[in-house]
């Protein structure tokens, strides 16, 4: 029952309000597309504030006290409802399965938009966007914004199989070229046997070289992001990685989502993935220490015994 009257990209004009809101939203539409469930949520005062790379926090069902993050895939104006955000839900565990099963009309407490967005280049540079599975959702609004700025956009989409390949057709409309890699070889480059991270890692140098990439934007599981960050560095490009770090609040209150990040002063600090991230500079994340506290953090260097 789509009553959509128009569609815009995530991220409005520079003078639109920013910062999160906590509101009661409503599921307007819910639709199974391949392995994923696509939801449109009416969320007063949230959609307008979205930027590419931000996300919303949604409930995970009765009895689950934490929240779950979902990338804002797009923003649309919906007749009679004001603005809505679109999210893609991969029903992998109890929280996401609960969400994917809720019918249209369900009311949800929504917090968002949350997190630091992708930074956009000032000049029209060459950008490569790498997205894996549902995570690629946050790259679509980014691609549109980059194109508006005159950037060249090249996309590398990866997925375990075709049912998890997000909107390759739509990608082709914004991008100069789209490369597809699937784990089972069902679409695009074959790769049976190796992990998706390895496949992306293998495909990337050529894609970056051909595009003469200045910036690489990536959204994927951490193993793939680490490969992207490495490939970007080898190619002399900046990388911005959208990292999904588990954490229950997603609003910056609990420090549950710590990520070791190298600061300007060359010292590692534990920063909050949900607040200082989710988009972090790929060359600054200590990928080999994710989930742990590296021994050489600012805090320990400062003498703190733990």
């Amino acid at each position: 029952m789509s009553t959509a009257t128009g569609s815009t990209t995530a991220g409005g004009a520079p003078d639109t309000p920013t910062g999160p809101r906590h509101v009661t939203g409503e599921i307007l539409t819910t639709k199974k597309v391949g392995a994923y469930q696509h939801l449109t949520l009416a969320v007063p005062d949230v959609a307008e504030r979205a930027r590419p790379g931000t996300f919303v926090a949604l409930p995970a069902g009765e009895g689950r006290l934490g929240r779950r993050a979902f990338w804002i895939r797009g923003v649309r104006t919906v007749g009679g409802f004001g603005s809505a955000v679109e999210v893609v839900v991969d029903p992998v565990g109890p929280g996401s399965r609960w969400l994917a099963a809720q019918p249209a009309g369900t009311r949800l407490e929504v917090t968002g938009p949350l997190g630091r967005p992708f930074s956009l280049p000032r000049d029209p540079v060459s950008c490569v966007l790498v997205g894996e599975g549902y995570s690629a959702a946050c790259l679509f609004p980014l691609a549109s914004r980059l194109k508006e700025r005159g950037c060249t956009v090249v996309i590398l989409l990866a997925a375990a199989d075709e049912s998890r390949l997000l909107a390759a057709l739509e990608a082709r409309r914004t991008a100069r070229s789209v490369t597809v890699v699937t784990g089972d070889g069902s679409v695009g480059r074959a790769g049976a046997g190796s992990s998706l991270a390895d496949l992306v890692g293998a495909a990337l140098p050529e894609v970056l070289a051909r595009a003469e990439a200045d910036v690489v934007y990536a959204a994927a599981p951490a193993a793939t992001l680490a490969r992207v960050a490495g490939a970007a560095e080898d190619a002399g490009a900046w990388s911005q990685t959208a990292l999904e770090q588990p954490g229950p609040c997603l609003t910056g209150l609990c420090q549950g989502c710590a990520v070791p990040v190298l600061g300007e002063d060359r010292v590692v600090r534990m920063v909050r993935g949900c607040t200082e991230g989710p988009v972090l500079r790929g060359d600054r994340v200590r990928w080999d220490s994710l989930g742990r506290v590296p021994t050489e953090t600012a805090e320990t260097a400062g003498g703190g015994a733990v």
Binding site: R64, L65, G66, P246, G303
Partner: peptide, 25 residues
């Protein structure tokens, strides 16, 4: 003195609440 906190996962849901070991970051 500053403290970096403990390893992840630091906060985990349990049926009756939240389990946490942030480690005083």
């Amino acid at each position: 003195r500053p403290r970096p906190g403990g390893p992840l996962p630091r906060v985990v849901e349990s049926p009756s609440g939240l389990l946490h070991a942030v480690g005083l970051q």
